[in-house]
């Protein structure tokens, strides 16, 4: 196997594992559109990173966090419905990102690779980012897991139980931003949400507990990466879309199985 395929597989599986664990919360908490908005704003992060000369991953994380906090603030103002608000933020930040990149034509940015990812161009440095960021993300998730589940079930109940809602939400947003930064180069802005929610949805029918669902989502995502890579090599498909198609097929296949659940 050529080296670039091994790199792609290693990075993709690491990424899918982390995205499975974050993705279940995106599904449970109905944050799919929110994730999309953060992903769209990531392009602005790339531009900011280039312009002020910092690591683009740091730029992406910073911009995603600002958008996330802005979103929480605007939502508390209740001027507009949440999906309208997300739409405004998603598209305006994507447009700003595109405009910034084209203004600074000196920026040699391969736009397509950010929109759709380029997993076959993954470098050892990218793998270090995915695994470093991934271990941090999974560690923090494990630490906050109980509180996050509690908030997901009922925010007010969690608060009366003494869960620090603000801190937990903020940390989760940060992890979310980190995962988007990790995913961007590999799967691309436009497909990030797909890899968050499709494996989680495929895992639902087999899981009896929240933890099982997270583990199964990670496995489903990893299988999708492996199949997608294979398909992309066989039929010369763009890799990001091939992985998403594989995930969607896994989800479709999961529907053939009965729902696993506790009594009744």
């Amino acid at each position: 196997m050529p080296e670039f395929i091994i790199y792609a597989l290693v990075a993709g599986i690491g990424l899918a594992t982390v995205m499975g664990a974050i993705g279940v919360f995106v599904v449970w908490r109905r944050m799919a559109y929110f994730g999309d908005t953060l992903a769209h704003s990531a392009l602005l992060g790339v531009a900011v990173g280039f312009i002020i000369g910092i690591n683009i991953n740091v730029g992406i994380i910073a911009v995603c966090l600002i958008i996330a906090i802005g979103m929480v603030y605007l939502r508390s103002q209740r001027h507009l419905a949440e999906d309208t608000l997300l739409g405004i933020l998603a598209h305006s930040s994507l447009a700003l990102g595109l405009a910034a990149i084209s203004l600074f034509s000196a920026l040699r940015v391969d736009l397509m690779s950010y929109l759709f990812g380029d997993i076959l161009a993954v470098t050892p440095e990218d793998i270090a980012w995915v695994y470093g960021g991934g271990i941090i993300t999974l560690g923090v998730l494990a630490w906050l897991w109980k509180d996050l589940i509690s908030i997901t079930v009922h925010e007010d109940l969690a608060r009366t139980d003494g869960v620090n809602i603000f801190r937990t939400q903020l940390v989760f947003m940060t992890l979310f931003a980190l995962v988007i930064a990790m995913a961007m180069k590999i799967i691309g802005i436009l497909l990030v949400t797909a890899l968050l929610i499709i494996p989680a949805a495929a895992a639902r029918r087999f899981a009896r507990t929240p933890e099982q669902m997270a583990v199964f989502a990670a496995i489903a995502g990893s299988i999708a990466v492996a199949i997608g890579l294979q398909g992309s090599l066989l039929w010369d498909l763009p890799t990001g879309p091939a992985i998403v198609i594989a995930a969607a097929l896994l989800y479709a296949a999961s529907l053939a199985f009965p729902m696993q659940q506790n009594s009744r």
Partner: peptide
């Protein structure tokens, strides 16, 4: 309670919280 349909959660687990 508005527990999302996608969240597998037993009564035991809910009480354990």
């Amino acid at each position: 309670l508005a527990i999302d349909r996608t969240l597998p959660l037993s009564v035991r687990r809910f009480l354990e919280m």
